[in-house]
Amino acid sequence: MRAPNLTLPQRAPTALPRTWSARAGAALAALAVVVFPPVAGALDWPYYLSLATKTLALVLAASALNLVLGYGGMVSFGHATYYGLGAYTVAILAREGVRQAWVVWPTSVLVAALAALAIGAVCLRTRGLYFIMITLAFAQMVYYGVVSFKQYGGQDGLRAPRTEFGFHLGDVELYYLALGLVWVSLWFLWRLVHARFGVALQAVRDNEVRAAAVGYPVYRIQLVAFVISGALTGLAGALMAHHTQYVSPAMLSWPQSGHFMFMVILGGVGRFWAGVLGAVAMTVLEELFHAATVFWQFYVGLALLAVVLLAPRGLAGLWERRR
């Protein structure tokens, strides 16, 4: 047996549920995420509320990565950079005394987007393995750059007090904020992948030479997708900074990038719900193994190896009919 390539869906999947049972399931899931905080509050589960918020931030990051990895076919091994920069912007602005939400959040997204623009502009001139390696190289540069800035914590990381919205941003409020951001972002991504841009992006992924030959500006399309993905990953980072109220260079490290990639693959690369399924499944998997054994990472690794070798279409692929 050999590992098949990670197969992409035949067509951009029409992911809105069509059968009645599926619609009922989706509605139930939507209801569950909306009423989760009061339920968690009633049951006194602060830990699970916090875990859910964290998962939402990961969902956002993984979905953003899926745009370049799944829809764009660009294997970026440095997405932790944008995630970390988004988070660090929150912390650094707070340290400099800027905590107004309407300043901090847009700045986070902007910083991540600009970084993605600069890095993407260089990296997208290479292909294949070299693209993987050069995105990694830039990620390492940013990582070490941040580590050496002692006034912003260096290796120790930095506290990141939550921004001010004019109301108390407690854990429940943060959960709903995260839910809202994820919902809006997913909606945006949904529209995007089904609009002209998404079609063009997938055309470039499927056949770059052909795409150029019918008139698509390949480089610009890839770069714009890269920047959008970077910006959304930055948003995820800002969200995570609000959740942990602390940022550290580990958010920028390459294992973090690998972690995001794993979530996308686990979810099913190139399927719309890959980020959601992957991030949720990864969190569940980690919690599950963590509760069961000290050596939980071994089993996470085993599970992921099994996914890569046996179910290359990921979790989202489970719903697809076998060809």
Binding site: R191, L192, A195, R196, A200, A203, P217, I221
Partner: peptide, 21 residues
């Protein structure tokens, strides 16, 4: 359709579904 799309205008439309065109 992909070829027609490339010819008939910007690829940088992010919102309107292609299926409506």
């Amino acid at each position: 359709a992909r070829a027609v799309q490339a010819r008939t205008g910007s690829s940088f439309r992010f919102w309107r579904p292609v299926s409506s065109e």
